[in-house]
Amino acid sequence: MHQLVDDIDGTLLEAGEGETIRFSLNGAAYEIDLTNSHAEELRESLAPYIRAGRRASAGNVRAAAPRRRAARNSEVSEIREWAKSQGLNVSERGRISAEVMDAYRAAH
Rank of each mutant, 00 (worst) to 15 (best):
R105C: 11
A39W: 01
R95L: 03
A28P: 01
E41Q: 09
I32G: 01
E14A: 10
A106D: 15
S85M: 11
E14F: 00
H2E: 11
Y49Q: 03
L4E: 10
L12C: 06
A52G: 12
L13Q: 07
I21T: 13
L13C: 09
S85V: 02
I50F: 11
S74G: 14
R80Y: 03
M1E: 14
A107I: 12
G87P: 07
R93K: 15
A71M: 14
A103K: 12
Y30D: 03
E75R: 01
N89F: 06
M101T: 06
G27C: 01
R51F: 08
L25G: 08
A71F: 14
A65P: 06
S77K: 15
A107W: 13
G16A: 08
R105L: 13
I96P: 00
Y49E: 11
S24L: 06
D102A: 11
L88S: 02
R54Q: 13
G53N: 09
F23T: 01
R80I: 10
G27E: 06
R55H: 09
G94I: 07
R67L: 14
E81N: 07
T35N: 02
L46A: 15
V61F: 05
R67D: 06
L25R: 05
R54C: 03
E31D: 08
Y30N: 07
T20F: 06
N26F: 10
I21K: 04
E14M: 01
G59W: 02
N73S: 11
F23P: 00
L25K: 01
A47V: 04
E17A: 10
G87W: 06
V61W: 09
L34K: 05
E19W: 02
L42S: 02
